[in-house]
Amino acid sequence: MSIVEVNHLKKYYGKSRGIEDVTFSIEEGEIFGFIGPNGAGKSTTIRTLLALIRPTAGSATIFGLDCIRNAPQIARRVGYLPSEVFYYDGMRVLELLKYSASFYRRDCAARIRELADALDLDLKKKIEDLSFGNRKKVGIVQAILHEPGLIILDEPTAGLDPLMQQRFFELLRAENRKGATVLFSSHVLSEVRKLCNRVAIIKEGRIVNVDTISALQDNGYKKITLEAKGAVSQAEYALEGVTSLTVQGNLVTFLYQGGVNALLHMLAERELINVTIEEPDLEEIFLHYYR
């Protein structure tokens, strides 16, 4: 069964676009990446899944339940960490976490302490006295303390130092091993690659591709770097299968998709000093989608 199913979800705020047409599904046990630049509609999609906003059209289900109509039932098994966390300033960390736990009909005291230890979080401090990164830690504990079946993270790593990021990812992997499905939105590719099995790429409110990380990397693109004898013009390399072409003096780089023989034929016709052919970085593939 799909844990999350999003069907042609659309959201307009008055006349301005939130998302245009978003469709994807997440299988049980996946760590699913949701990638796109700022303003592409990641948060809008997530906030609709959480019933914080109502879709203009389309629908979504979580655990097979409608995300708007059955929101409270779904929420019992969902943990959510927003990109910027805000809590009640006057409360102490432990008070806030207990307040949060009180909604889930279970005793989370031991788990709160265990998670706080793992993240180096001082439970006695007041929320208002916490730094941005420490608030984030409160958010992380709050999001997973009730051992949710689905963890939704909206650009969660902002404000965490590299060490904490690593511990956070370890916690997520541990939850994942216990059976939790994860939806991880980000515009930072490296972290998505580290963590996720599959990604959906969103652009201007539409999903442009959903694939596994390895398939995305293994999609036939080659990254070519050439050093020619003497200056070359852009037009010489504007051929079929060539994208992301840059020419600087006698240095040429481009992405190539197509038959390797055709490529080598083409290269053999030119006066070259040097050539390297490599697998492109994930970054470069993504940039390709956004051109």
């Binding site: 959480l50 019933a51 914080l52 929101a71 409270p72 039932q73 779904i74 929420a75 019992r76 969902v78 959510y80 927003p82 910027e84 805000f86 809590y87 009640y88 300033d89 949060s100 909604f103 889930y104 709050q142």
Partner: peptide, 17 residues
């Protein structure tokens, strides 16, 4: 105003409750 609505409204309760 305090941006805590996200926290409160993602708890397992209807908005009515």
């Amino acid at each position: 105003a305090g941006k805590t609505a996200d926290f409160l409204l993602t708890r397992p309760l209807t908005r009515g409750r």
